[in-house]
Amino acid sequence: MSHPLLKVENLRVSFHIKSEGDMPWTKPRELHAVGGVDFELKQGETLGIVGESGCGKSTLARALIRMVPGSGKVVWMGGDNLLDVSKSKMMNYRSEIQMVFQDPLASLNPRMTVGQIIAEPLRTHQPNLSNAQVKERVKKMMQQVSLLPNQINRYPHEFSGGQCQRIGIARALIVEPKLIICDEPVSALDVSIQAQVINLLMELQRKMGLSLIFIAHDLSVVKHISNRVMVLYLGKVMEVADRNDLYENPRHPYTQALISAVPIPDPEIERNKEIILIDGDLPSPLAPPSGCVFRTRCPKAQPICATTPPTLDPQSDQETHLVACHFA
């Protein structure tokens, strides 16, 4: 059996918070941004990660490439654990995993030309390429993301948001990675441009056999691009399932509420559908609720939820549908 591209086991990220006025010997408080996440990603597959703001989506993505320190296991193609390989070995993996960021303009250095920006990963990972070779590859890449190659000497501020995002995608793809982590790549763009960028990503994925980890809080976007979807809440996985399964048959109360909130472009259905409202705010990750983290806002909460944290279990009727709830 071939190994999955990425196998994440019990990934945890915690930050130490020191508040103002603490004595030097006061123990810093721990903030668990990501609390034990497991998932698998197969080659060519897209995993969508959804959840509300502050639930640890971006931290999870950054922990995978060691931008923030995490613990647990991130196994790359059945081999090394990315979280404890040496720095120099990690360099090799960095060209295999690239990232696309949220704010298209902010993710490009305003003082560099587009050519220099796209070439940077290439120059870092293949320093012995000649200037002409680099330029040729950059131009080819620009063509693939439908930018005019003759604009190689332009600066980021001369492009629109959608074009900037395509520059970001070109930069990620130039070293021919196997996995691209997209951290809300379309939330800063308007809807028509979103479609453009997403279709471009899907097309490139098909052509180059990429795997994607796609973070977003727009459920319809995630539905469009993902094969599997993972729902996060306060750093914990609530539900993982294949796309259609999750959207048509959500089992976790949180997922049900999320999906009921997606607007449907038909006023008749929209008016009559039942929206599950969740009260309250996301609890502070500094003091997460005991037991099930969602119980403070859950319509189905029972005494057992406060004492025993539910495990992420496959459903009896469906092996690939995993839910963390006592009542699913």
């Binding site: 360099m91 960021f101 993710s107």
Partner: peptide
């Protein structure tokens, strides 16, 4: 904290 610095770090510059 700008994203282009983060992008460079992520590629391993």
């Amino acid at each position: 904290n700008k994203e282009f610095i983060e992008a460079a770090q992520a590629t391993g510059v």
